[in-house]
Amino acid sequence: MAGTWVVVDQRDGNIRKVTFELISEAKKYGEVAAVLFGKGVEGLAPEFAKYGADKVYVCDDDLFASYNTGAYVAQLEAMIKEYSPNAVLFGHTVNGRDFAARLAQKLDAGLATDAIDFELSDGKGVFTRAIYAGKALAKVEVTGNPVLATIRAGVCEVVEADGAGEVIKPAIVATADDVYQVEKEFAPTVSARPELTEAEVVVSGGRGCKGPDGIKVVEELADLLGAAVGASRASVDSGWLGHELQVGQTGKVVNPNLYVACGISGAIQHLAGMSSSKYIAAINTDPEAPIFSVADFGVVGDLFKVIPLLIEELQK
C-alpha cells in the first residue's frame, strides 16, 4: 500500500486550507504524500511537511502554470500508474471536483464527491455525502486502486505534525497536446474578507436587510468578526449581493464555527446550506421564522436596531 495522496489546491502559491485539512486527516491512515502542480512551486514543498506529508510530488512545468484539466489529468494518471497510491483525495473546490471527475472517468473508476466524512482501508473507502444540500446523508462505498474522492472544505481539522516532506520530481509526461482549455484571464475577487466556504464565521443578510443600506449593516458586523458575508436567495434575487455569496441549495453549503443569519426567515433551501454550522445565531423580526428552529441563539428584533448595539457591545 503506497499511502494516501492529497492533490494540492493552489493558485499563484496560495495554498487552500482544505489541502492541509486533508493531509492532516489522511495522516491517520499511514503514509501521506502531497501532489503539487504548478510552475516555480518547488519552494512550497516544506509547507506540506509541517502537517505531516511524508513525500511531496512536485510537478513543475510551464504546462501546469495555471489549472487546466487536460494536462493535469494526463500527468496524474501516469503518476498513479507508476506509484500506485491507495487513495487520491482532492478538496471539493471548483478545480478539485473538475480534476477528480475527469480523472475518475479516465481510470474507469468510481468517485465520491463532496464527502463530509470518510474512512479509508486498502482498496476501499467509505464516504459520507450530504445529499439534497444536506437534507439527507448517504454513506457510500468506493472501491478501486486508487480510491478517489473530493472532500468538503472545513470538515477535517488542520493538525501540525512532523513529516519528512521528501521531494520527488516525477517525469513530466503531459504535453501541450493535452491542454484543451486555455485560461485567458483570471479576475480575483477583490475582497479583504475570507472566502465563504473557508471562513470561520459567516454573517449573512436576507430580505430583512430591505436594501443595500441593510447589507452595509451586515457587512459592518462581518468585518468586526473577520467573517465572510453570505446571502439568502432573496438578497441575491434583489441584486443586493452576488450569487457567488448565496448560501443554500442552489448556492454554497457552508459549515463555519459561527453562522449569523440577519433578516433571513430560513426557507428550507437556505437551512440546507448552513444547518451544519457549529453555532448559529439569528436576528429576525418574525418570532415564527423557521430560522429560529435551528438557531442556538435567536434574537427577535429589527436588525437595524440589534446589529448596531451588538457591534457596540462587541467593541467594548
Binding site: 473508476a109 468510481g110 468517485l111 465520491a112 467509505v126 450530504a130 444536506g134 437534507k135 439527507a136 446523508l137 448517504a138 454513506k139 457510500v140 462505498e141 468506493v142 472501491t143 478501486g144 444547518s275 451544519s276 448559529i280 428552529s293 435551528v294
Partner: peptide, 14 residues
C-alpha cells in the same frame, strides 16, 4: 455502478 450506497440517513435535527 461504480459507487455503492450503503445507507441513507437524515442529519440530526438541530
Amino acid at each position: 455502478n461504480k459507487v455503492k450506497v450503503l445507507e441513507y440517513a437524515l442529519p440530526e435535527a438541530k
